[in-house]
Amino acid sequence: MKKKYLFLLNPKSGTARKEPLITALHERLRFESDLRYEICYTTYAGEGRKLAAQAAQEGYFAVVAIGGDGTVNEVAASLLDSATALGIIPTGSGNGLARHLKIPLQPAKAATYLLATQRSAIDVGAVRIGNLVRYFFCTAGLGFDAHVSQLFAQNPQKRGLKKYASLVWQEFATYQPQTYQVWLENQTEAQLLEAFMLTFANAGQFGNDFYISPQADITDGKLDFCHLQKLSTWQAYAFAWQTWRKRAYKNTKLHISQIQKARICSEIPQPLHLDGDFIANVKEIEVEILPKKLKVLFGS
C-alpha cells in the first residue's frame, strides 16, 4: 500500500516566494512510486489544524507542515496520539523545532530528508489556561520573551530575526522582573520567584539557534524549567552570546531544573507565549509534559 502524505503550506509564513518551492516539491515527489501526496494551501488561521486532523482520521502516513513555528504548532497539535507523523519543511524565521531535530533548512533537502526517515515519538508540552489546553513543542514562557512576542505579533507585516532583535533591545531597558507564585511537581506550598523570564523547555532552543537550555531532551519525559533573573546591560549581551553558543546554563542568573509539571500564578496578568507565538495575558497556568505524545519524521 502506498504511503499517503499531505503537505500543508502557509503562504504567509516566511519571506521566500512559495511558487519555486512547490515546483521543486512536485519535481522531487513525482518520481516516488511508493507514495501518494497532496499539496494544500491554508487560507485562514486554524485551517491547517482542521486539515491535519482529517488526514490523521483517514490514516495518512504523514502531514508535512511547510512554514514557520506557528504553522508547525498548529499542525502538530492535531496529530497527537495518532499514527500520523508530523513532517516539517521549514520556511519561517525561527524554525525552532526543525533546527532542534536537525531537519535541513533548505526546502529541497528537507523534502529528501523526510522521505528517508521513519516515525519517531517525541514529548509534548501542555499548558492549561482555565478550561483551555494548548500545546507547545519547543518552549513556552512567561515574562520578557512573551512580552516581546506580544509586541512582535502586533505588527505581522514586519517579521524576521532583525525585527525581533530590535524589539528585544528596545524593551530590555524598561521591562521589570515580575513576581510569580510557583508550585513545582507536587509541592503544597508555593515558592515566590522574582523572574525576568520563566521558560519551560521541551526542546533546547527558542529558534534561530538561540538555546535557552541546550541539554533539553525532547524524548526524556521532562521539561527544563528555566528561571532567569534580571540582567544588567552587559550581562544581557553576555547571555545573548551564551544562548547562541549553547552555554546559557553557565550563566549564574539562569537556574534550570527538570520537572514534569508546574503551576504558576501572578497577581497581575502576564503575557504567555507558546513556541514563540503570543497566546494571551494570564494570571494562572498549569504546565505538564506529555511523554511520547507525537510522532515526527526525523532521524536516520
Rank of each mutant, 00 (worst) to 15 (best):
A121I: 01
I122Q: 03
I122P: 07
D123M: 01
V124Y: 01
V124S: 01
G125D: 01
V127R: 00
R128K: 06
R128P: 00
I129G: 01
N131C: 01
V133R: 05
R134S: 07
Y135W: 06
Y135C: 03
Y135D: 04
C138D: 03
C138F: 00
T139Q: 09
A146R: 04
H147K: 07
Q150T: 04
L151H: 13
F152C: 03
A153L: 05
Q154K: 11
N155T: 11
N155F: 03
N155M: 05
Q157V: 01
K158F: 04
R159E: 06
R159A: 02
R159W: 03
L161W: 08
K162V: 10
K163S: 10
A165P: 00
S166W: 06
L167R: 07
W169A: 07
W169F: 15
Q170K: 15
E171N: 11
E171M: 09
T174W: 07
T174F: 11
Y175D: 07
Q176K: 15
Q176T: 12
P177F: 13
P177R: 12
Q178V: 11
Y180W: 08
Y180L: 14
W183E: 03
W183I: 04
L184R: 11
E185K: 06
E185F: 06
E185L: 05
N186D: 15
N186G: 04
Q187E: 15
Q187G: 11
E189M: 11
E189V: 14
Q191L: 14
Q191A: 14
L192E: 14
L192M: 08
L192K: 14
L193Y: 10
L193G: 00
E194L: 10
E194C: 10
E194Q: 15
A195E: 13
A195K: 12
F196E: 04
F196N: 12
M197A: 14
M197P: 06
M197Q: 15
L198S: 08
L198A: 09
F200R: 07
F200I: 06
A201C: 12
G204M: 11
F206A: 06
G207R: 03
G207Y: 02
N208M: 07
D209E: 13
F210S: 12
Y211H: 12
I212F: 09
I212P: 13
I212S: 06
I212M: 08
S213Y: 04
Q215H: 13
A216T: 07
